[in-house]
């Protein structure tokens, strides 16, 4: 085909450039669609299972849409006040963790980014490596501690716990983000007689919104999906979160497969919306934080 369209000198015409560009674009989109099967196919299957009856889920040969297609599983979840409470708790806790983590991490990251102080390297090593202790071994001492502090079965107990998990990453990312912002910005504030905190709040924070959004989304996800501590640190179902609600459907004798799938579909929707809403900031923010992290 190229033989007939390329002119004598071998220089592609404008029309050819456009056509080649279009072909490339089509190929790219085709590749993206094909590759999308990797992340999406299992999710499609999850979605499909949530509309089946429990018996059909394991039928062989498997079918995407069955004759008993129904929204029963969704109705069962959305009409159960206990399960709705799980969703409410998850929002509340994940939201609070996100806001508080950002507030605390921003202050710490400012210190790491703008000051030299004794023990900086040690604190850095500790902040990174505490993430590596298997949570399961911390469970019992941690539980004792939370009970001793009077935080057992309370929202603050869970919120502070998740902050401990999310802070290290948030600090690392925010430090990297602040490092990308020129120091001259805050020096100018200091020259005008302002204190460091003024520089942070008046100058750095307003231009750091993308970085904070990216850290925020990550933090939200961690708090939203955590299971082990959410279960151990709560006593009554009115304090529990969606992952526990899902686990409660895995009974001793049988699983409520369709409801499990429906509940995780429902659980993922808010996070998906959050991502869609924030993704422009998110992508932009990650870059700056990560480059210098």
């Amino acid at each position: 085909m190229s033989a007939t369209t390329v002119d004598a000198a071998g220089v592609p015409t404008r029309e050819q450039v456009v056509r080649r560009h279009k072909a490339k674009k089509a190929a790219l989109i085709a590749a993206l669609v094909v590759c999308a099967a990797f992340p999406a196919a299992p999710i499609v299957w999850m979605l499909s299972s949530s509309f089946k009856t429990n018996g059909e889920i394991f039928a062989y040969p498997p079918r995407l849409v069955t004759s008993n297609f129904s929204f029963d599983a969704y109705v069962a979840i959305l009409t159960d006040p206990e399960k709705l409470r799980f969703f409410f708790n998850s929002y509340l806790i994940a939201g609070a963790v996100t806001v508080l983590t950002l507030a605390v991490a921003v202050l710490a990251a400012y210190a790491f980014s703008r000051f030299e102080f004794p023990g900086k390297r040690l604190i850095n090593v500790v902040v990174i490596s505490v993430q590596a202790v298997p949570p399961i071994t911390l469970l019992i001492p941690y539980f004792g501690l939370v009970v001793a502090l009077g935080l057992y079965n309370t929202y603050p107990g869970l919120i502070l716990t998740y902050m401990v998990f999310t802070l290290p990453y948030a600090i690392i990312m925010m430090t990297g983000y602040f490092n990308t912002l020129p120091r001259e910005l805050d020096e100018a504030v200091k020259v005008d007689g302002g204190r460091p905190i003024t520089a942070l709040f008046r100058v750095l924070l307003p231009i750091s919104v993308p970085g904070m959004v990216s850290v925020g989304v990550y933090t939200f996800m961690i708090a939203w999906n955590e299971y082990l501590f959410a279960l151990t640190l709560t006593r009554t179902n009115d304090m529990r979160t969606v992952p526990i609600g899902i686990q409660l459907l895995m009974g001793q004798h049988a699983y409520e497969w369709n409801q499990m799938m429906a509940m995780s579909v429902l659980g993922s929707i808010p996070v998906l919306v959050l991502f869609l809403f924030f993704q422009r900031y998110f992508i932009g923010g990650m870059s700056a934080g990560a480059v210098k992290a």
Binding site: L139, G144, V147, N237, I244, L248
Partner: peptide
């Protein structure tokens, strides 16, 4: 009586942790 229910698979961990801290 206050009924406290948990998932079967995690019941044992919860009892062990509860016993360790007297709760």
């Amino acid at each position: 009586v206050e009924l406290l229910s948990g998932p079967y698979a995690s019941t044992k961990e919860q009892v062990v942790a509860g016993a360790a801290s007297g709760t």
